[in-house]
Amino acid sequence: MRNPGGVFIYTSPEGEVVTESFTCGHCGNLVEVKPKQDPANIGGLCKCCMKLICAGCVARGNCDPFEKKLLRAEARGIALRSYGL
């Protein structure tokens, strides 16, 4: 990958294998990218938020960035705190 989001390091008695990964920009899933893997099998690039996304989110076909999901999850707590509760 040109800009990986992380690395997996698999260490076994046979040796060490390092693969790259990215975190889905829509759901936060970890996606492992193996060497020479067909890009069509690992997800895609969302042209709305310009983030790499997993195959499941590609299939959904809409743009719902992970940061907005987090803000929705936190909204109730933020509101309760603003009321002093």
Partner: peptide, 28 residues
């Protein structure tokens, strides 16, 4: 599930994220 894998018991599996690519838990 954010990540799952079947791995030989003898192996160790490590993941390291680069900045901005972490697994995030909301402040809930």
């Amino acid at each position: 599930s954010l990540w799952a894998a079947g791995i030989n018991q003898r192996a160790t599996h490590r993941w390291v994220a680069f900045p901005g690519q972490e697994l995030v838990i909301p402040a809930t």
